[in-house]
């Protein structure tokens, strides 16, 4: 399933470095697919993706695509941030528990905050001029039914 792609103004405030390995994640993300790595031996998922399993150190891994649906585990609105994020203040960030059992930290769109914990969220791709990032946005209760 494909994530919604949302256009953002300007460049990413801080651009991730991309390696030969992590390019597989960022290239898929640019097309709306959110990938994590999974160990073929013990099925441990890893995010951020990595070339070996952090549980058994096995190097035989798969890339699997997640649906991007989850719940907001925690959230804050940042009112004092680094200089490069000054134009975005205040901005929201959160911890998202994906339905696939993976936890991640990310930007929250739509001014979500501490009052929205446990509400359903959906990962989206944020397309900046210099490349993609991901973010999460609250899912309206009625929109959660396909």
């Amino acid at each position: 399933m494909s994530l919604a792609i949302i256009g953002m103004p300007g460049d990413r405030p801080l651009a991730p470095r991309v390696t030969r390995f992590t390019a597989q994640f960022w290239d898929a993300l640019a097309e709306g697919r959110f990938l994590v790595t999974r160990c073929k031996a013990c099925h441990q998922k890893s995010f951020p993706p990595q070339a070996h399993c952090k549980s058994c150190l096995g190097c035989d891994i798969d890339w699997i695509e997640l649906g991007g649906r989850g719940r907001l585990y925690s959230a804050t609105r940042v009112h004092a941030g680094p200089a490069r994020f000054a134009a975005a203040l205040p901005y929201s960030v959160g911890i998202v528990d994906l339905d696939d059992g993976v936890r991640l930290a990310t930007r929250l769109l739509g001014n979500a905050g501490p009052e929205h914990l446990d509400q359903p969220v959906q990962l989206v791709v944020t397309r900046y001029q210099d490349g993609p990032l991901f973010a999460a946005e609250l899912v309206a209760p009625d929109a959660s039914i396909p």
Binding site: R12, P13, L14, A15, P16, R17, V18, T22, F47, P48, V78, A80, G81, P82, F85, A88, Y91, V93, L104, A105, T106, R107, L133, A135
Partner: peptide
């Protein structure tokens, strides 16, 4: 730095 810092997590 590549998967969390770009969101401005202080």
């Amino acid at each position: 730095v590549d998967f969390q810092s770009p969101f401005g997590l202080t």
